[in-house]
Design a protein around this nucleic acid. Sequence first.
DNA 1: CGCTCGCTTGATCTCGGTCAATGCGTGTGG
DNA 2: CCACACGCATTGACCGAGATCAAGCGAGCG
Lengths: 183, 183
Amino acid sequence: MSQAIYSGAIKAYCVSDDGTEQVTGFYMPGEIFGWDGIADNRHKNTAVALETTAVCEIPFNKFEALSASMPILQKHFMQLMAREINNDQQLITLLGKNSAEERIASLLLSISDRLGRRKLSPTRFRLPMSRADIGNYLGLTVETVSRVFSRFQASGYIKCDKKEVEILNLPNLSNLSHQCAEA
Amino acid sequence: MSQAIYSGAIKAYCVSDDGTEQVTGFYMPGEIFGWDGIADNRHKNTAVALETTAVCEIPFNKFEALSASMPILQKHFMQLMAREINNDQQLITLLGKNSAEERIASLLLSISDRLGRRKLSPTRFRLPMSRADIGNYLGLTVETVSRVFSRFQASGYIKCDKKEVEILNLPNLSNLSHQCAEA
DNA sequence: CGCTCGCTTGATCTCGGTCAATGCGTGTGG
DNA sequence: CCACACGCATTGACCGAGATCAAGCGAGCG
């Protein structure tokens, strides 16, 4: 049914019938993904590890049995699904209303924030995904992603070498991505 | 917790802290919305009726009690939530990868399809929402929405007067919106 | 009657997509 | 060990879809 990530990173994406991929999210340690399969017990989404990754499979039928005896578990899972919905809707806002710079600033801040919660450095990290994945996720081309990274670097917001990123000016970045707080 | 729509139509949207609105969906008779509130028992989303609308409120605590005694109900609701996630991810694809014409074609077809399921005419209907709402939902400006409607009409795909729409060439429209089948 | 609101249409501008070239690290085979 | 290819990232030049600005129009309403 779903999977909890121990270490590493995952990209989730779905392919439409015309063959194009849409990255729907990046998942990092401590996060859970794979809700969509519940709808019809057939995943429309696929997931690939972006680096060496350890996951914990949670089969749906096991979960059903468990939650019958533990109602609190059921509520917890519904909350996690609802959080997924909120995340998606945040992404929808990002794609519908925000510029390339705003989208990438938001992504960087989201990653920073999520790493911070896991007690990892929120200002120095390695992006697990490629520029192409970022572009796909944010509805941009590789070239635009690359240009924005360069521009951010020129402005002194970040320092980055390929996937290695250091956030230098967090306030300015979050100023760019005036989005609601991460769920 | 959530609401089932008897008649009329609803637009759901959320406002970010900078005050901008993002329409996250249109809901029609027989559909259910309001999942997001489960995450923290506080809705980030708001809903307004677009026309005279009758809804049925489903409070979360009632639901919890019910589903404890009826496990099948719980599964059913999780499936509905998962469908919501799938819908959102379809919208994400639409916003990230598709042109203005493709987005609007998809919306028209989605409405057509959903009306058809309720045994209403899938080719002649009245759009319950304004051009501005459509634009907000699809990440477009009012002007672009209006222009695309005009272009579709010029191409003989649809006939429309303000909110009254008739689909003349369904194959061509679905050709435009080469998207995966609605969940 | 005059006002506002929603919709349409036109003119212009701009952000980001497209096309193309280059660099760079890595793996592979001679 | 070197040559080459391949994937990924960067950068530049150009172009176009859609945003922005502006004007006009019909319908509803005080």
